[in-house]
């Protein structure tokens, strides 16, 4: 019995629990499967059809994603002779892991977080910028013309959306006067949700994230009809599955940040006190953050059903010509709000 207790202790040991189970690997896996399933379902509903249905029609085809996962896992991984093997293999794995890293500093409740730092917003923002670089590496290592083009497009896009995202995050931390998610959420609880205080920042962030995680209409770096699968053209089997998952994992992380900065974090459910530590500090606030993040993510995947894809220069023009300015405007708005708060 002691061993079992030890094991349970180990699993519930916050850093491990945090990184492996919730909101880490396992939760992200479930989230991804749910999201891909709902993306296909949403698209199917809009498109005069059902979406996945064949496997277990009663569950609306939900096990389809399990089947896909199993297929990816069992498929042969082909590593072409011409690729640069080490970066080819490492890039998607590292990108996936690093994509999840910002979760180390994003709190899901006032007490539930593995690393407490004053600069958690800064660290999270910094970590989110790394995976795209690895995608470029993957394309470069693939030694394939389409992969190269995909990487080149991605590198153009990075410069655009990363700056916009960082500016918006800066404007929000300016507004809350802190670089710590905990304090930012507290500030929102004391005052108003960020999305009301600075709606321009919220919209800009939303669009920039869509650009960053290649949602439609910004699905440019892996445009199928143009460059096959972009940087991941040469990947197969589980590596391809992983590569596909990266953008969803990044979307999840970005949306957690969105919830913490704009949607009041664990606001509605986090305040309930039942006396049970696990319920109070993990499940209820965690659930409210996660549910909000899922809703935002669903909105993002919904656009697949409405848009085609932009050309890269349109996206860059829109990014620099409009959303970049909007990001600057959002900083101005933050300043105005801060000024108003001081006046009253």
């Amino acid at each position: 019995m002691a061993i079992v207790e030890r094991l349970i202790d180990l699993i519930l040991w916050p850093p491990l629990f945090y990184y492996i189970i919730f909101p880490g690997l396992i939760f992200v896996m479930i989230f991804e499967m749910f999201l891909i399933w709902s993306e296909r379902k949403i698209a199917g509903r809009v498109q005069m059809r059902y979406g996945p249905l064949e496997i277990a029609p009663r569950l609306a085809g939900a096990p389809q994603l399990m089947a896909d996962l199993i297929r990816y896992a069992l498929q042969e991984v082909i590593i072409p002779r011409t690729v640069d093997k080490l970066p080819f293999v490492i890039a998607p794995i590292a990108a996936f892991v690093i994509a999840l890293m910002p979760l180390l500093v994003t709190p899901f409740s006032p007490t539930f977080l593995p690393v407490t730092t004053e600069g958690s917003i800064l660290i999270a923002a910094a970590l989110t910028t790394i995976p795209p670089l690895l995608l470029i590496l993957a394309g470069w290592a693939s030694n394939n013309k389409f992969s190269l083009v995909g990487s080149a497009r991605e590198s153009f896009l990075i410069a655009t959306y990363e700056i916009i995202i960082l500016l918006v995050i800066a404007s929000m931390s300016f507004l809350y006067g802190t670089l710590d998610f905990l304090k930012a959420v507290e500030a929102q609880q004391a005052l108003l949700w960020g999305i009301i205080l600075n709606p321009i920042a919220a919209i800009t962030y939303f669009v920039a994230v869509m650009m960053g995680t290649s949602r439609f209409p910004f699905e440019i770096a892996e445009a199928e009809s143009e460059i096959v699968m972009g940087a991941f053209t040469e990947y197969s089997g589980i590596m391809f599955g992983l590569a596909m998952g990266i953008s969803y994992a990044r979307m999840f992380v970005y949306n957690i940040i969105f919830v913490l900065l704009f949607l009041g974090g664990w606001s509605p459910l986090g305040g309930i006190v039942t006396g049970n530590y696990i319920l109070d500090s993990i499940i209820l606030p965690g659930a409210s953050v996660a549910i909000k993040a899922v809703i935002i993510s669903l909105l993002m995947v919904f656009t697949r059903a409405v848009y085609g894809r932009y050309r890269i220069d349109h996206a860059l023009k829109g990014g620099w010509g409009f959303w970049f300015i909007m990001a600057l405007v959002s900083i101005g708005l933050s300043a105005a709000v801060v000024y108003l708060m001081e006046v009253f």
Binding site: A43, V46, Q47, M48, R49, F216, P217, E219, A223, E224, S225, R304, A305, V306, Y307, G308, R309
Partner: peptide, 12 residues
């Protein structure tokens, strides 16, 4: 439509 990435119009 599908070449432009617009899957909905493709289906429609």
């Amino acid at each position: 439509a599908i070449l432009l990435g617009h899957s909905t119009m493709y289906m429609w």
